[in-house]
Design a binder for these strands. Structure first.
Lengths: 168, 168
DNA sequence: ATAGAAATAGCAACTCAGTCTCAATAAAGC
DNA sequence: GCTTTATTGAGACTGAGTTGCTATTTCTAT
Protein backbone atom coordinates (compact mmCIF):
# COMPACT_ATOMS: atom_id res chain seq x y z
CA UNK A 1 0.00 0.00 0.00
CA UNK A 2 1.65 3.20 -1.16
CA UNK A 3 -0.62 5.87 0.30
CA UNK A 4 -0.23 5.83 4.09
CA UNK A 5 -3.40 7.92 4.47
CA UNK A 6 -5.67 5.85 2.21
CA UNK A 7 -8.99 5.06 3.85
CA UNK A 8 -9.78 1.44 4.58
CA UNK A 9 -13.00 0.02 3.21
CA UNK A 10 -15.56 -1.06 5.74
CA UNK A 11 -16.75 -4.67 5.63
CA UNK A 12 -20.34 -4.99 4.55
CA UNK A 13 -22.58 -8.01 4.24
CA UNK A 14 -24.20 -7.15 0.92
CA UNK A 15 -22.81 -5.98 -2.40
CA UNK A 16 -23.92 -2.50 -3.50
CA UNK A 17 -26.21 -4.12 -6.06
CA UNK A 18 -27.83 -6.31 -3.43
CA UNK A 19 -28.27 -3.37 -1.08
CA UNK A 20 -29.82 -1.33 -3.85
CA UNK A 21 -32.21 -4.13 -4.74
CA UNK A 22 -33.26 -4.29 -1.12
CA UNK A 23 -33.90 -0.55 -1.11
CA UNK A 24 -35.86 -0.70 -4.36
CA UNK A 25 -38.05 -3.54 -3.10
CA UNK A 26 -38.73 -1.71 0.14
CA UNK A 27 -40.01 1.22 -1.92
CA UNK A 28 -42.01 -0.86 -4.34
CA UNK A 29 -39.62 0.09 -7.11
CA UNK A 30 -38.35 -2.17 -9.86
CA UNK A 31 -34.96 -3.64 -10.54
CA UNK A 32 -34.50 -2.53 -14.11
CA UNK A 33 -31.76 -2.89 -16.65
CA UNK A 34 -30.67 0.79 -16.58
CA UNK A 35 -30.49 0.84 -12.80
CA UNK A 36 -28.37 -2.29 -12.87
CA UNK A 37 -26.02 -0.86 -15.50
CA UNK A 38 -25.58 2.38 -13.63
CA UNK A 39 -24.84 0.93 -10.23
CA UNK A 40 -22.49 -1.63 -11.75
CA UNK A 41 -20.62 1.13 -13.49
CA UNK A 42 -20.52 3.45 -10.50
CA UNK A 43 -19.18 0.83 -8.11
CA UNK A 44 -16.53 -0.48 -10.47
CA UNK A 45 -14.39 2.63 -9.83
CA UNK A 46 -13.61 4.28 -6.53
CA UNK A 47 -13.07 7.88 -7.59
CA UNK A 48 -15.28 10.88 -7.10
CA UNK A 49 -17.45 11.53 -10.12
CA UNK A 50 -20.24 13.71 -11.42
CA UNK A 51 -23.40 13.20 -13.44
CA UNK A 52 -21.78 14.59 -16.55
CA UNK A 53 -19.14 11.89 -16.66
CA UNK A 54 -21.73 9.16 -16.30
CA UNK A 55 -23.89 10.66 -19.00
CA UNK A 56 -20.91 10.81 -21.28
CA UNK A 57 -19.93 7.21 -20.63
CA UNK A 58 -23.38 5.67 -20.44
CA UNK A 59 -25.48 7.90 -22.65
CA UNK A 60 -23.34 9.53 -25.32
CA UNK A 61 -20.58 7.05 -26.07
CA UNK A 62 -22.43 3.86 -25.31
CA UNK A 63 -24.74 2.45 -27.96
CA UNK A 64 -26.94 -0.59 -27.56
CA UNK A 65 -28.02 -2.62 -24.59
CA UNK A 66 -25.87 -0.89 -21.99
CA UNK A 67 -27.10 2.60 -22.73
CA UNK A 68 -28.75 4.78 -20.08
CA UNK A 69 -30.47 8.06 -20.88
CA UNK A 70 -29.67 11.37 -19.26
CA UNK A 71 -32.87 11.64 -17.19
CA UNK A 72 -32.41 8.10 -15.95
CA UNK A 73 -28.84 8.81 -14.92
CA UNK A 74 -30.06 11.73 -12.81
CA UNK A 75 -33.04 9.83 -11.47
CA UNK A 76 -30.95 6.84 -10.50
CA UNK A 77 -28.24 8.97 -8.90
CA UNK A 78 -30.89 10.46 -6.64
CA UNK A 79 -32.09 7.01 -5.71
CA UNK A 80 -28.57 5.87 -4.96
CA UNK A 81 -28.14 8.85 -2.66
CA UNK A 82 -31.45 8.21 -1.01
CA UNK A 83 -30.63 4.57 -0.47
CA UNK A 84 -27.37 5.54 1.22
CA UNK A 85 -25.14 3.99 -1.43
CA UNK A 86 -23.77 7.30 -2.64
CA UNK A 87 -22.98 10.55 -0.95
CA UNK A 88 -23.55 13.80 -2.82
CA UNK A 89 -21.75 17.07 -2.28
CA UNK A 90 -21.76 20.42 -4.05
CA UNK A 91 -18.46 21.85 -5.15
CA UNK A 92 -18.37 25.02 -7.15
CA UNK A 93 -22.05 24.77 -7.99
CA UNK A 94 -21.85 21.23 -9.39
CA UNK A 95 -22.80 17.96 -7.74
CA UNK A 96 -20.02 15.49 -7.02
CA UNK A 97 -20.67 11.94 -5.87
CA UNK A 98 -18.68 9.36 -3.98
CA UNK A 99 -19.28 5.92 -2.52
CA UNK A 100 -20.93 5.97 0.88
CA UNK A 101 -21.87 2.35 1.38
CA UNK A 102 -18.91 0.29 2.55
CA UNK A 103 -16.84 3.38 3.01
CA UNK A 104 -15.95 5.13 6.26
CA UNK A 105 -17.05 8.64 7.21
CA UNK A 106 -14.59 11.26 6.09
CA UNK A 107 -14.18 14.84 4.96
CA UNK A 108 -12.23 16.51 2.17
CA UNK A 109 -9.39 18.77 1.24
CA UNK A 110 -10.23 20.40 -2.08
CA UNK A 111 -7.36 21.62 -4.23
CA UNK A 112 -8.51 24.69 -6.10
CA UNK A 113 -5.67 24.26 -8.60
CA UNK A 114 -6.09 20.66 -9.78
CA UNK A 115 -9.66 20.23 -8.51
CA UNK A 116 -8.68 17.05 -6.70
CA UNK A 117 -10.43 15.89 -3.57
CA UNK A 118 -8.28 14.42 -0.83
CA UNK A 119 -10.07 12.43 1.81
CA UNK A 120 -9.25 12.48 5.49
CA UNK A 121 -10.74 11.19 8.70
CA UNK A 122 -11.04 13.14 11.89
CA UNK A 123 -12.93 11.78 14.86
CA UNK A 124 -12.36 15.09 16.64
CA UNK A 125 -14.35 16.89 13.98
CA UNK A 126 -17.35 14.76 14.68
CA UNK A 127 -16.94 15.46 18.37
CA UNK A 128 -16.62 19.17 17.79
CA UNK A 129 -19.70 19.13 15.62
CA UNK A 130 -21.75 17.36 18.24
CA UNK A 131 -20.57 19.72 20.95
CA UNK A 132 -21.58 22.77 18.96
CA UNK A 133 -24.91 21.19 18.10
CA UNK A 134 -25.60 20.44 21.75
CA UNK A 135 -24.79 24.02 22.68
CA UNK A 136 -27.46 25.26 20.28
CA UNK A 137 -29.98 22.50 21.02
CA UNK A 138 -29.56 21.54 17.39
CA UNK A 139 -30.22 17.97 16.29
CA UNK A 140 -27.33 17.33 13.90
CA UNK A 141 -27.92 14.73 11.22
CA UNK A 142 -24.80 15.31 9.16
CA UNK A 143 -22.26 17.83 8.02
CA UNK A 144 -20.12 18.94 5.14
CA UNK A 145 -16.58 20.05 5.82
CA UNK A 146 -14.42 21.02 2.88
CA UNK A 147 -11.04 22.64 3.30
CA UNK A 148 -10.02 24.70 0.30
CA UNK A 149 -6.41 25.26 -0.62
CA UNK A 150 -3.56 23.92 -2.70
CA UNK A 151 -2.33 20.33 -2.57
CA UNK A 152 1.28 19.29 -2.19
CA UNK A 153 1.71 18.49 -5.88
CA UNK A 154 0.35 21.81 -7.07
CA UNK A 155 2.48 23.72 -4.57
CA UNK A 156 5.58 22.12 -6.05
CA UNK A 157 4.56 23.09 -9.54
CA UNK A 158 3.92 26.68 -8.55
CA UNK A 159 7.34 26.90 -6.91
CA UNK A 160 9.03 25.44 -9.98
CA UNK A 161 7.29 27.96 -12.21
CA UNK A 162 8.39 30.77 -9.92
CA UNK A 163 11.98 29.63 -10.02
CA UNK A 164 11.90 29.45 -13.77
CA UNK A 165 10.65 33.00 -13.93
CA UNK A 166 13.34 34.12 -11.53
CA UNK A 167 15.98 32.96 -13.99
CA UNK A 168 14.82 35.22 -16.82
CA UNK B 1 -29.12 41.60 23.98
CA UNK B 2 -31.47 38.61 23.80
CA UNK B 3 -29.34 36.12 21.89
CA UNK B 4 -26.44 35.04 24.10
CA UNK B 5 -24.69 33.50 21.08
CA UNK B 6 -25.00 36.46 18.71
CA UNK B 7 -21.72 37.28 17.02
CA UNK B 8 -20.13 40.63 17.77
CA UNK B 9 -19.27 42.87 14.87
CA UNK B 10 -15.61 43.59 14.33
CA UNK B 11 -14.48 47.21 14.36
CA UNK B 12 -13.39 48.43 10.98
CA UNK B 13 -11.96 51.73 9.83
CA UNK B 14 -13.92 52.13 6.62
CA UNK B 15 -17.57 51.72 5.79
CA UNK B 16 -18.40 48.96 3.33
CA UNK B 17 -19.04 51.58 0.67
CA UNK B 18 -15.64 53.16 1.26
CA UNK B 19 -13.91 49.80 1.19
CA UNK B 20 -15.66 48.91 -2.02
CA UNK B 21 -14.65 52.19 -3.62
CA UNK B 22 -11.08 51.49 -2.68
CA UNK B 23 -11.29 48.07 -4.28
CA UNK B 24 -12.87 49.47 -7.43
CA UNK B 25 -10.22 52.15 -7.78
CA UNK B 26 -7.45 49.61 -7.31
CA UNK B 27 -8.90 47.64 -10.20
CA UNK B 28 -9.48 50.64 -12.47
CA UNK B 29 -13.23 50.13 -12.11
CA UNK B 30 -15.83 52.85 -11.77
CA UNK B 31 -18.02 53.85 -8.87
CA UNK B 32 -21.39 53.70 -10.56
CA UNK B 33 -24.93 54.29 -9.44
CA UNK B 34 -26.02 50.62 -9.63
CA UNK B 35 -22.99 49.49 -7.64
CA UNK B 36 -23.76 52.11 -4.99
CA UNK B 37 -27.41 51.09 -4.78
CA UNK B 38 -26.59 47.44 -4.45
CA UNK B 39 -23.99 47.75 -1.74
CA UNK B 40 -26.15 50.19 0.18
CA UNK B 41 -29.01 47.76 0.05
CA UNK B 42 -26.94 44.72 0.94
CA UNK B 43 -25.32 46.31 3.97
CA UNK B 44 -28.52 47.77 5.37
CA UNK B 45 -29.62 44.29 6.52
CA UNK B 46 -27.59 41.69 8.31
CA UNK B 47 -29.29 38.50 7.18
CA UNK B 48 -28.12 35.88 4.76
CA UNK B 49 -29.51 36.47 1.31
CA UNK B 50 -29.39 35.23 -2.26
CA UNK B 51 -29.23 36.80 -5.70
CA UNK B 52 -32.89 36.08 -6.30
CA UNK B 53 -34.02 38.22 -3.40
CA UNK B 54 -31.91 41.14 -4.55
CA UNK B 55 -33.19 40.82 -8.09
CA UNK B 56 -36.70 40.82 -6.80
CA UNK B 57 -36.18 43.90 -4.65
CA UNK B 58 -33.90 45.87 -6.94
CA UNK B 59 -34.90 44.74 -10.38
CA UNK B 60 -38.51 43.60 -10.43
CA UNK B 61 -40.27 45.69 -7.79
CA UNK B 62 -38.18 48.81 -8.01
CA UNK B 63 -38.89 51.27 -10.81
CA UNK B 64 -36.88 54.37 -11.59
CA UNK B 65 -33.53 55.65 -10.39
CA UNK B 66 -32.84 52.93 -7.83
CA UNK B 67 -33.31 50.05 -10.24
CA UNK B 68 -30.54 47.52 -10.91
CA UNK B 69 -30.77 44.92 -13.65
CA UNK B 70 -30.37 41.20 -13.19
CA UNK B 71 -26.98 40.89 -14.88
CA UNK B 72 -25.65 43.79 -12.85
CA UNK B 73 -26.85 42.25 -9.61
CA UNK B 74 -24.89 39.10 -10.43
CA UNK B 75 -21.86 41.03 -11.65
CA UNK B 76 -21.75 43.22 -8.59
CA UNK B 77 -22.23 40.32 -6.20
CA UNK B 78 -19.14 38.71 -7.70
CA UNK B 79 -17.21 41.93 -7.22
CA UNK B 80 -18.34 42.18 -3.64
CA UNK B 81 -17.14 38.66 -2.99
CA UNK B 82 -13.85 39.36 -4.74
CA UNK B 83 -13.32 42.49 -2.74
CA UNK B 84 -13.85 40.59 0.49
CA UNK B 85 -17.03 42.41 1.45
CA UNK B 86 -19.26 39.41 1.04
CA UNK B 87 -18.80 35.73 1.56
CA UNK B 88 -20.50 33.28 -0.74
CA UNK B 89 -21.56 29.76 0.04
CA UNK B 90 -23.51 27.08 -1.78
CA UNK B 91 -26.43 25.50 -0.02
CA UNK B 92 -28.61 23.04 -1.85
CA UNK B 93 -27.24 24.12 -5.21
CA UNK B 94 -27.97 27.81 -4.74
CA UNK B 95 -25.58 30.60 -3.78
CA UNK B 96 -26.16 32.28 -0.42
CA UNK B 97 -24.32 35.43 0.65
CA UNK B 98 -23.46 37.01 3.96
CA UNK B 99 -21.40 39.94 5.19
CA UNK B 100 -17.74 39.19 5.48
CA UNK B 101 -16.24 42.63 6.02
CA UNK B 102 -16.59 43.75 9.62
CA UNK B 103 -17.83 40.35 10.63
CA UNK B 104 -15.93 37.62 12.45
CA UNK B 105 -15.10 34.19 11.00
CA UNK B 106 -17.75 31.66 11.72
CA UNK B 107 -19.46 28.53 10.47
CA UNK B 108 -23.07 27.43 10.23
CA UNK B 109 -25.75 25.12 11.44
CA UNK B 110 -28.27 24.66 8.65
CA UNK B 111 -31.80 23.67 9.58
CA UNK B 112 -33.18 21.48 6.83
CA UNK B 113 -36.73 22.11 8.07
CA UNK B 114 -36.91 25.92 8.16
CA UNK B 115 -33.85 26.56 5.98
CA UNK B 116 -32.42 28.88 8.60
CA UNK B 117 -28.70 29.37 9.04
CA UNK B 118 -27.40 29.64 12.59
CA UNK B 119 -23.91 31.05 13.00
CA UNK B 120 -21.36 29.81 15.47
CA UNK B 121 -17.69 30.37 16.19
CA UNK B 122 -15.19 27.65 16.96
CA UNK B 123 -11.51 28.39 17.27
CA UNK B 124 -10.87 24.65 17.66
CA UNK B 125 -12.26 24.04 14.20
CA UNK B 126 -9.70 26.32 12.70
CA UNK B 127 -7.01 24.53 14.64
CA UNK B 128 -8.25 21.13 13.58
CA UNK B 129 -8.33 22.28 9.97
CA UNK B 130 -4.76 23.51 10.10
CA UNK B 131 -3.57 20.31 11.73
CA UNK B 132 -5.13 18.16 9.04
CA UNK B 133 -3.75 20.43 6.34
CA UNK B 134 -0.26 20.19 7.80
CA UNK B 135 -0.52 16.43 7.89
CA UNK B 136 -1.22 16.38 4.16
CA UNK B 137 1.23 19.14 3.23
CA UNK B 138 -1.84 21.02 2.07
CA UNK B 139 -1.82 24.83 2.01
CA UNK B 140 -5.28 25.66 3.38
CA UNK B 141 -6.76 28.99 2.33
CA UNK B 142 -10.24 28.56 3.71
CA UNK B 143 -12.97 26.11 4.50
CA UNK B 144 -16.67 25.54 4.52
CA UNK B 145 -18.25 23.74 7.43
CA UNK B 146 -21.99 23.32 7.48
CA UNK B 147 -23.76 21.14 9.99
CA UNK B 148 -27.11 19.89 8.76
CA UNK B 149 -29.92 19.06 11.10
CA UNK B 150 -33.00 20.44 12.80
CA UNK B 151 -32.99 23.59 14.90
CA UNK B 152 -34.50 23.90 18.36
CA UNK B 153 -37.66 25.63 17.11
CA UNK B 154 -38.39 23.05 14.45
CA UNK B 155 -37.81 20.19 16.89
CA UNK B 156 -40.49 21.64 19.17
CA UNK B 157 -42.94 21.87 16.30
CA UNK B 158 -42.33 18.29 15.27
CA UNK B 159 -42.86 17.10 18.82
CA UNK B 160 -46.07 19.07 19.09
CA UNK B 161 -47.34 17.56 15.86
CA UNK B 162 -46.47 14.09 17.11
CA UNK B 163 -48.33 14.60 20.33
CA UNK B 164 -51.37 15.79 18.45
CA UNK B 165 -51.34 12.63 16.36
CA UNK B 166 -50.98 10.48 19.46
CA UNK B 167 -54.29 11.82 20.75
CA UNK B 168 -56.29 10.59 17.78
C1' DA C 1 -45.33 -19.53 -19.18
C1' DT C 2 -48.42 -15.47 -19.83
C1' DA C 3 -51.56 -11.75 -19.58
C1' DG C 4 -52.42 -7.50 -17.40
C1' DA C 5 -51.40 -3.73 -14.22
C1' DA C 6 -48.07 -0.57 -12.87
C1' DA C 7 -43.59 1.41 -12.90
C1' DT C 8 -40.10 3.08 -15.80
C1' DA C 9 -37.15 4.63 -19.80
C1' DG C 10 -36.34 7.69 -23.19
C1' DC C 11 -37.32 11.64 -25.71
C1' DA C 12 -38.00 16.33 -26.03
C1' DA C 13 -39.39 20.23 -23.94
C1' DC C 14 -38.75 22.87 -19.97
C1' DT C 15 -36.91 25.34 -15.74
C1' DC C 16 -33.72 27.91 -13.15
C1' DA C 17 -29.48 30.12 -11.88
C1' DG C 18 -26.14 32.36 -13.84
C1' DT C 19 -23.51 34.32 -17.98
C1' DC C 20 -22.70 36.66 -22.39
C1' DT C 21 -23.30 39.83 -26.34
C1' DC C 22 -23.91 44.07 -27.80
C1' DA C 23 -25.84 48.67 -28.49
C1' DA C 24 -26.79 52.59 -25.61
C1' DT C 25 -25.34 55.12 -21.51
C1' DA C 26 -22.70 57.04 -17.87
C1' DA C 27 -18.18 57.77 -15.31
C1' DA C 28 -13.45 59.67 -15.23
C1' DG C 29 -9.90 62.36 -16.82
C1' DC C 30 -8.52 66.17 -19.33
C1' DG D 1 -17.57 70.37 -21.60
C1' DC D 2 -15.74 66.65 -24.30
C1' DT D 3 -13.70 62.30 -25.21
C1' DT D 4 -12.46 57.87 -23.84
C1' DT D 5 -13.62 53.77 -21.83
C1' DA D 6 -16.08 51.05 -18.49
C1' DT D 7 -20.63 49.77 -17.57
C1' DT D 8 -25.44 49.09 -17.94
C1' DG D 9 -29.62 46.73 -19.38
C1' DA D 10 -32.19 43.96 -22.59
C1' DG D 11 -32.51 39.71 -24.33
C1' DA D 12 -30.40 35.70 -25.92
C1' DC D 13 -27.89 31.95 -24.29
C1' DT D 14 -25.80 28.07 -21.39
C1' DG D 15 -25.55 24.01 -18.56
C1' DA D 16 -27.27 21.32 -14.86
C1' DG D 17 -31.03 19.19 -13.64
C1' DT D 18 -36.18 18.12 -14.03
C1' DT D 19 -40.72 16.98 -16.03
C1' DG D 20 -44.67 15.40 -19.10
C1' DC D 21 -45.68 12.07 -21.92
C1' DT D 22 -45.85 7.65 -24.55
C1' DA D 23 -43.81 3.28 -25.54
C1' DT D 24 -41.58 -0.26 -23.17
C1' DT D 25 -40.26 -3.19 -19.44
C1' DT D 26 -40.86 -5.32 -15.04
C1' DC D 27 -43.54 -7.64 -11.85
C1' DT D 28 -47.45 -10.28 -10.20
C1' DA D 29 -51.10 -13.25 -10.34
C1' DT D 30 -52.80 -16.38 -12.88
Amino acid sequence: MSDPFALEAVDVALTPMERFEEYLKSKGKRITQPRRILIEHVFSHHEHFDADGLIDELSHQSKGADRVSRPTVYRTLNELVESGLLRKMEIGGRAVYEHDYGYPDHDHLYCTKCQNLIEFQSPELRELRDNVARMYQFRATGHRFIVNGVCEECQKQTRRKKRRIDLI
